[in-house]
Nucleic acid binder design. Structure first.
Length: 817
RNA sequence: GGGGCGGUGGCGGAACGGCAGACGCGGCGGACUUAAAAUCCGCUGGGGCAGCCCGUGUGGGUUCGAAUCCCACCCGCCCUACCA
């Protein structure tokens, strides 16, 4: 009996050796093609959970595969280290965010190392370090200089008791209360900084330069929400005021029977007549709460109130009542709409409720002239539309826009759902925005040479969650860089999505201090060749980082348009109950426990084996045993071979040798193809199948043949990417040179992989009736003759005549009767 | 309401126009053992258990042939929220 597989003994030993010998040190080796692999960086939560392993093991596997294929593969790691949990820990436990974050990072580094991944630790970057966030500030200044950063008023959730703004995740429940004191939150306007991502809206809709999954492209496209339409103004009877409205249906403008403003629309107060004021105020108050109430109640009634004023339709001069209603949003378009109840479902509901007229202006194709029972939103013929009557609506659409432009009524415009990126956060644990407010000079950017604006260490964390920066005199009080007079710093910090928008660049050269990254190093590695991460980031991080790269290009930092050429979205690993893992459900699986029992190799391989990486799936604590058994079998077979336990004088038959070679080369082919296609589950199944074959063959004479040595070596090499430790150990025992991870990936020989005999399926009308063993290269004629000669076929055929015989080479014969 | 993903044995899944269920878990039987564990070998979709019949959410369609392509519907999960 050979020595037993003992992962806990071999794994730490090899990790040490890899570190000592610098096996994964990054070198800009220009003699090799580069391949930049990037996996979404972890947040410094303190503990590596199974989701991290699920995301990282396959990407490490693929990076290792590329390395064995002659690429210089770059696989960096870092930490997303700013964010609210650190501040909460400071408030609750009195630990400074920096200290909390760093002890978390220490622990996570230790846990990450047990994975045995080929990370480029020498390029690690941590976003809460001044050396990192200095460049967030630098980017801010560049954006400011290039007109991509501006400040305007914007609403935030505000807790009146805690006297602080709240982040989205601090607002709880249907009544939207503060997580700390349970007071219902209110909206409050603050001056905040924005970045002009909308400048790139059209370019962000262009995916021609990237190979990204279709669902992500669709989600980004919907999120950007480009819609073509017209913007025009409605006059208000008896005033000089004009209400701008946006519509995607200018062809329906004659069907407007009322106008609706968002309750927060700036003209509401001015236009409301005295007798409607109370009602309007009451509705506004209701809307300010209700519009934020969780929209779980799908059957919400569409309501609103008349404000007493009338608008004028500029095309037919008809006067129509003006309402406010919470179904119109201040944040989209102009915050006001022309309501055409016949051709918009929401307007239809509203008009029905308040008894407003619903004139048809687009006749549906088979319209009988009767009133509509629901809104008709399709194309049709224009009616009741003055000079446009009789026009097909899709042509009339353009006619009316042209008419509006010719008569200075309005303009054809494009509207986006996408808003500019609000980056201000009223928080401590983030990057200070490098701006100074001077009573004389106004808004003054911090000079580049004064960066970084450091977060003060002696911050005082109040239980209410107020930002310590607002009360920190030493931070707040400064001098104006322009006039030298007393001035105040901006106390808001940046959204943490800023950190992750460009971290792939910082990994080039985390110690570089002349710019965000060393352009010489960037020239070699950039852009990212393969990015992997969850699809939940489709419309946030993945959009922001594309924006950042385009802005960097326009600033002259990079010469390409997209940050990541290829993207793969992995699924989510669930608990054994098929529910999302969470502490409250009690279905959390701890990676540390599993590693200490089974070793990292088994754990990595099981996560890949459990199902397609893109799908995720439930954890199964018994399933992992199967993978462990598989590795233990490989261990036994390889050691048996290495120690030549099985020497006999017998020589194998040609047939046995060919069968072994065929298995080896078919497996190499399958594993290579699956590795390319991210099909790690079937890749491992193929390796298991080969191992099962070797288990059968190891006691036969073929184990003495050179083909056996080839099979064993190939198996170990193919195991190196998914299970780096055991492969290294076995490779050494086989007498291979250090390291297995520097060996070439095995290649298959198509001739050796080819089947000689196949099972030909015989069907009648597509139903399986018989099978016969035939040579692969059987001709159609031979196959047909063989099929008709089959006893079972004859029996099923009875006396019916074959009308047609379909022959599919290598597969089947189908007789049609 | 909009968008995305998915329904295949007891379970995770494979096959993605051509033998449905690879590989693994679990189960059953056997070998080894005083015994158990571990390990190894065999069987394992359902029904008749013999020739066969039925099976990929449901109902249609295309095709010589459909889990796979098309249409309609049902169910589940995720994201998003009245986008004019």
């Amino acid at each position: 009996m050979v020595e037993k597989y003992n992962p806990t003994e071999i794994e730490p030993r090899w990790r040490e050796k890899w570190a000592e010998t610098g096996l994964y040190r990054t070198v800009e080796d220009r003699s090799k093609p580069k391949w930049y692999f990037l996996t979404m960086l972890p947040y410094t939560s303190g503990n590596l959970h199974i989701g991290h392993w699920y995301a990282m093991s396959p990407s490490d596997t693929k990076a290792r595969y590329y390395r064995m294929n002659g690429y210089n593969a770059f696989f960096p790691i870092g930490f997303d280290a700013f964010g609210l949990p650190a501040e909460n820990a400071a408030i609750r436990h009195g630990i400074h965010p920096y200290q909390w974050t760093h002890s978390n990072i220490e622990n996570m580094r230790r846990q990450l190392r047990t994975m045995g991944a080929m990370w480029a630790w020498d390029r690690e970057a941590v976003s809460c370090e001044p050396e990192y966030y200095k460049w967030n500030q630098w980017f801010f200044l560049q954006f400011y200089k290039h007109g991509l950063a501006y400040r305007k008023m914007s609403p935030v959730d505000w807790c009146p008791t805690c006297n602080t703004t709240l982040a989205r995740e601090q607002v709880w429940g249907e009544d939207r209360h503060c997580e700390r004191c349970h007071t219902p939150v209110v909206k409050r306007d603050l001056a905040q900084w924005f970045w002009k991502i909308t400048d790139y809206a059209d370019e962000l809709l262009d995916f021609s330069k990237i190979d990204w999954p279709e669902p992500v492209r669709i989600m980004q496209t919907n999120w950007i929400g480009r819609s073509e339409g017209a913007e025009f103004t409605l006059g208000v009877r008896g005033t000089e005021d004009r209400i701008p409205v946006f519509t995607t249906r200018p062809d329906t403008v004659y069907g407007m029977t009322f106008a609706v403003l968002a309750p927060e629309h700036p003209l509401v107060d001015k236009l409301t007549t005295p007798e409607h004021r109370d009602e309007v105020e009451a509705y506004k108050l209701k809307a300010s709460r209700q519009s934020e109430i969780e929209r779980l109640s799908t059957e919400k009634e569409r309501d609103g109130v008349f404000i007493g004023a009338y608008a004028v339709n500029p095309l037919n001069n008809e006067e129509i009542p003006i309402y406010i209603a919470d179904y119109v949003l201040m944040t989209y378009g102009t915050g006001a709409i022309m309501a055409v109840p016949a051709h918009d479902g929401r307007d239809f509901d509203f008009a029905t409720r308040y008894g407003l007229p619903i004139p048809v202006v687009i006749a549906p194709p088979d319209w009988d002239g009767q009133p509509l029972t629901e809104a008709y939103t399709g194309p049709g013929t224009m009616v009741n539309s003055g000079p446009f009557d009789g026009r097909p609506s899709n042509e009339g659409w353009h006619d009316i826009v042209r008419y509006m432009e010719e008569h200075d009524i309005g303009l054809g415009t494009i509207n986006y759902r996408l808003h500019d990126w609000l980056i201000s956060r009223q928080r401590y644990w983030g990057t200070p925005i490098p701006i100074i407010y001077c009573p004389d000079c106004g808004t003054v950017p911090v000079p580049e040479e004064d960066l970084p604006v450091l977060l003060p260490e002696d911050a005082e964390f109040r239980p209410t969650g107020e930002s310590p920066l607002r009360f920190h005199e030493g931070f707040l009080r400064t001098v104006c860089p322009q006039c030298g007079g007393p001035a105040e710093r901006e106390t808001d910090t940046m959204d943490t999505f800023v950190d992750s928008s460009w971290y792939q660049y910082r990994y080039m050269s985390p110690d570089y201090d002349e710019g965000p990254f060393d352009p010489k190093v960037g020239k070699y590695w950039l852009p990212v060749d393969q990015y992997t991460g969850g699809i939940e980031h489709a419309t946030m991080h993945l959009l922001y980082t594309r924006f950042f790269t385009k802005a960097m290009r326009d600033i002259g930092l990079v010469d390409f348009d997209e940050p990541m050429i290829r993207l793969f979205n992995q699924g989510i690993i669930l608990g054994e109950d098929s529910e999302k893992m969470s502490k409250s459900r009690g279905n959390v699986v701890d990676p540390d426990d599993l590693v200490s029992v089974y070793g990292a190799d088994t754990f990595r391989a099981y996560l890949m084996f459990v199902g397609p990486w893109s799908e995720g799936g439930p954890w199964n604590s018994q399933g992992i045993e199967g993978v462990y058994r598989f590795l233990a079998k490989v261990w036994d077979i390889v050691l048996e071979t290495a120690t030549k336990i099985n020497e006999t004088d017998e020589s194998p038959s040609e047939k046995e040798i060919r069968a072994l070679q065929r298995t080896t080369h078919q497996t190499i082919r399958k594993v290579t193809q699956d590795m390319e296609a991210f099909k790690f589950n079937t890749m491992l199944a193929a390796l298991m199948k080969m191992t099962n074959y070797l288990m059968q063959a190891r006691r036969t004479a073929v184990a003495n043949h050179p083909a056996w040595q080839e099979a064993i070596r190939s198996l170990v090499l193919m195991l190196a990417p998914p299970c780096p430790h055991i492969a290294e150990e076995l490779w050494e025992r086989l007498g291979g040179p250090y390291s297995v991870h520097q060996q070439a990936w095995p290649t298959w020989n198509e001739d050796l992989a080819r089947e000689e005999v196949i099972t030909l399926v015989l069907q009648i009308n597509g139903k399986l009736r018989d099978r016969v063993e035939v040579p692969v290269d059987i001709t159609a004629e031979e196959a047909r003759a063989l099929a008709l000669a089959s006893e079972k076929i004859q029996r099923h055929l009875q006396d019916r005549d074959p009308r047609k015989v379909v022959f599919v080479p290598g597969r089947l014969v189908n007789i049609v009767v």
